[in-house]
Design a protein around this nucleic acid. Structure first.
Lengths: 228, 228
DNA sequence: CACGTATATTAGGCATTCCTAAACTTGAGA
DNA sequence: TCTCAAGTTTAGGAATGCCTAATATACGTG
């Protein structure tokens, strides 16, 4: 235990588990077996087994029946993968003409294959960006990461004008839908209407109004409280 | 058998086996278990087992105790990997500042992770090159490949001036040694002296003479018979 | 043509990573 | 407090891909 395995010896699977647990709780609280299984599309028993092995490797702290949380070693390995993923996405958009809805799947495979020097060369070519094409912050090599405070579009007060910061990256179709309406990081939107009982919101982007369902409005994150 | 497995379902291992067999015999003659094992740094029994599985998948033709050769499906999968490998190498040198001795190891991992569209985007960014940084020809998407006739530097007649075409890519140290002496694809050399009994050759590059051992002179391939 | 060596294969095993089915733990509500 | 449903773990098993040891084949040479 507490071997703090050499980073290069981590398998794809292990890297995916660490990344999933980090995503489920960037703050470091324990993640449940069920949530990890759901995110990785695996069965709960598979996760149970792997969590046990990873805690023996010193990458996780596991309290049976209570959840798993990243150790320092685990967190740093996870952040290394997140950095890779987001830089690869940025690189593909900037230099290889990828659209923002296509990069996630490609990065998901490449992140396990690139070397650290290659990642740093890509970062340099990009001018060391701080966010990826979806607005997600890119961790530094030392593992520091600046999460900007943000409010879901669903929670913005009627009448306010805010800047879009960040959008969940995973569903390509959703990303195309958002891009077609100008709902991209850096885009400025005014909230014009909100229907009660969790109904849709109406936003105005570049003078055009769009009605956005609640589910979608919850994954579009905006600069908080930036009043017009 | 003869499933002609969907390309995306091939594992890293399978892709490496096919590439190895192609390298051992681009012409399609059977490759021996021993040679495959040696190239992949695996034990012969491991190769025996895998060869059996791959022939059941329709990627190889295997005659026990005689060797394995690629079927059409196997050859085309192998060439797809070779195309990826060489385009990745070219891309890393052209756009990410890699030196030619460092790209092989990086490409060896990336070739298993890139998608076909990414490979084609890289090819387009490069202007669809016909050779990689070591002078190795890049197969087309349809699997056609133009191997240029060439003569080993070790076999060039004394007094001839030839252009270097191609150098074995695998040993980084050897590549650095060659580059330091101008022995790179496109370089023009004149053979000044050859010692008998397999002794070293002396070549002149850009007015400077270098003595090159036989082993090295055998993996430097030159445009054949191009007299000054 | 028999023999021995080089080469190849089969036998048996191990690590990884996944699965389903069965057993166990937790905690909320009757 | 007891019960039970949701969630978790253990048990047992399969596929991949590697290994070593033992066995089988092929073929050049005496």
């Amino acid at each position: 235990m507490n071997v703090t395995a050499h980073p290069d010896s981590l398998t794809r699977s292990v890297e995916d588990y660490l990344k999933a647990i980090y995503r489920l709780s960037p703050e470091g609280r324990p993640a449940s077996t069920r949530d990890i299984a759901h995110l990785l599309e695996l069965s709960p028993p598979s996760v149970s087994g792997m969590v046990k092995r990873l805690s023996e490797l010193g990458l996780l702290e596991h309290i049976p029946y209570r959840g798993a949380q990243l150790t320092e070693a685990g967190r740093s390995a996870a952040l290394r993968m997140v950095r890779r993923h987001r830089l690869i996405e940025a690189y593909l958009v900037e230099f290889l003409g990828y659209s923002w809805d296509a990069v996630h799947a490609e990065a998901e495979r490449l992140e396990h294959a690139v070397s650290d020097p290659l990642v740093e060369r890509m970062a340099a070519a990009l001018g060391h960006p701080s966010v990826d094409p979806h607005g997600d912050p890119i961790p530094a090599t030392d593992g520091s990461i600046h999460e900007l405070a943000s409010t879901a579009l669903a929670d913005v007060a009627t009448g306010r004008t805010v800047e879009i910061r960040r959008v969940d990256e995973r569903d390509p179709e959703r990303l195309r839908y958002l891009a077609a309406r100008g709902l991209v990081p850096g885009g400025v939107v005014t909230l014009r209407d909100r229907q009660p009982f969790g109904g849709p919101v109406t936003v105005e982007v570049a003078g055009v109004r769009h009605v956005i369902g609640t589910e979608l409005a919850r994954v579009v994150l905006c600069g908080s409280e930036e009043t017009q």
